[in-house]
Design a binder for these strands. Structure first.
Lengths: 290, 290
DNA sequence: TTCCAGCTTAAGCTTGTCTTATGCTCGACC
DNA sequence: GGTCGAGCATAAGACAAGCTTAAGCTGGAA
């Protein structure tokens, strides 16, 4: 019988590309991953991996097996969720990932509602950029996460991750009446590698120029303080601009972002996940979205 | 992560009712099965089994998990089948179960066609009564089997077994023009526990009497020889009555049986299974069915 | 009450799996 | 083009998981 643990490793390899990266993700040594995948290959009776230069890649049979791995692991996830439901109401630890703005604005009321409704739940929050969420979910480091996706930035689709939309908000530009008018300004963006950074670059490119990025700041309050101090312009989401400092004008852009809850496919009926998503949704009307 | 091997044991327990029977089916000791199920229960965090008298039964949570076990194991079966397909055309051993008449009449041409088309295949045949087939398939002792089902006898439905119909045939009564006319005769049936035996009893009951069963004989040639010797009447399928001995009259009954191919759910796309079922189907037109 | 079937637990051994250590190969970089 | 490092594979050893044997417990039938 095929071992789902090995299938999980193969699936991670398909996504991450190197055995070393897989090992790091599952906190094994590369040696262990290599041995497990060799064993899987032996059981499969087909070559699944092939050395390509310094790294390994999947054969067609390997990719085929990854597809099946998705469904197998999803079914196992469903079974676990059903067991959790059989254990009774939501209880135990639930690891929540959230991007910083959500952690600041949405989570406080949501967590209050969550633990109020289900005293047995022990939420554990980690700030995490949406770009890293699916990996953390698959690795089992998180159970549910708040992510966002921007216009212009294609959402990371992952066959093993499921999302539920929560709310949408508009984006605002500081200092200038339009992105095009900020062509020659210094720009303040989030750190490279974050979705917000990509969004700002793409918005400028859509307006026909490459931004002159001078500052990389993740915290939007700091961003706005920089803007107030005349250090540049920035694009900020509505939620991060509820109380802009004096002197900062905000112009609504024809650009939005959507916030979603993400979790492992098949885990959506887990009572703790269900309760968390419900709590997120219940907290949305309290947000200063206009 | 839930272990599919343990899920398999739980599923077998749901069907067989005792740990001892499960152990016998998987050729473990009862101790091993007990330990595995205890471990599963520990991981699940819910009671799955409860002692009821001298045996164990499943809790509602246990039954719930069995449902999920079906889908998980089916997906794993699909993955294995896909790998077998990736390995190339049908090859290797394929264990075939067949009821005696099928083994005698259908299998010779089917096996010839099968090995002719796929020289790499090594068919291994075991005679087996349809009543025992699903257990043997689930236990992995067989890959595909020929079974039949009768009118009056509800087919054994098993969520983990899939069937494909092959052909239907009529049943014939020896010596008398109708079952009702044989009320006071001695009867020759197959051995108790077989589907054919059940069928004969039910047919008599439908005609309003309990048969006086004097002989239990599985081989239909022997049955017909007994009938020719005046030792009783019997109901035989068309395939078993292609050359009745002199003096035996056969009356077609308004009663049929259907022959099907059975295999583990999810395994239908396995190239060896596919090839075998195709070979069975191709051999059907050569059967003396009228 | 006795007996036996069925389940569980304990102890020991085998097997599998992970880590450490080592060697190999490919690609980048000077 | 030689050197270096990243990445993978293999060997050997430590540890855990799983199976068997052995023994004990419980409930139903005789």
């Amino acid at each position: 019988m095929l071992d789902p643990r090995k299938l999980h490793l193969l699936r991670e390899l398909a996504r991450r590309g190197t055995i070393a990266a897989v090992a790091e993700a599952v906190t094994f040594t590369p040696s262990a991953v290599s041995q497990q995948l060799s064993a899987l290959e032996r059981e499969a009776g087909v070559r699944l991996l092939e050395r390509t230069g310094r790294t390994v890649s999947l054969t067609p049979a390997g990719h085929l097996l990854v597809e099946h791995a998705h469904t197998v692991l999803e079914q196992l996830e469903r079974a676990s969720a059903a067991l959790a439901a059989a254990r009774g109401g939501p209880s135990g630890p639930i690891r929540i990932g959230a991007f910083p703005t959500a952690a600041r604005v949405l989570l406080p009321p949501a967590l209050a509602g969550l633990t109020g409704a289900h005293p047995g739940l022990v939420p554990m929050v980690s700030e995490i950029d949406p770009a890293d969420v699916s990996a953390a979910l698959r690795a089992g480091e998180l159970d549910v996460a708040l992510v966002h996706e921007y216009d212009f930035v294609p959402p990371v689709t992952d066959a093993s991750i499921e999302t539920e939309p929560l709310f949408a908000e508009a984006m605002y530009l500081t200092g200038r009446p339009s992105v095009a008018a900020a062509r020659d300004d210094a720009w303040i963006t989030n750190k490279p590698g974050t979705l917000c950074h990509t969004m700002a670059i793409r918005a400028c490119q859509a307006a026909g120029f490459e931004p002159d990025v001078r500052h990389h700041v993740d915290d939007f309050d700091t961003v706005l303080a920089f803007a107030a101090a005349g250090q540049g312009v920035a694009i900020v989401p509505r939620l991060a601009a509820t109380a802009p400092p004096p002197g900062v004008t905000l112009t609504r852009l024809p650009l939005g972002r959507r916030t979603l809850a993400a979790f492992r496919r098949g885990n959506g009926e887990h009572p703790a996940i269900r309760a968390a998503v419900t709590a997120f949704r219940d907290a949305v009307p309290r947000l200063p979205l206009r």
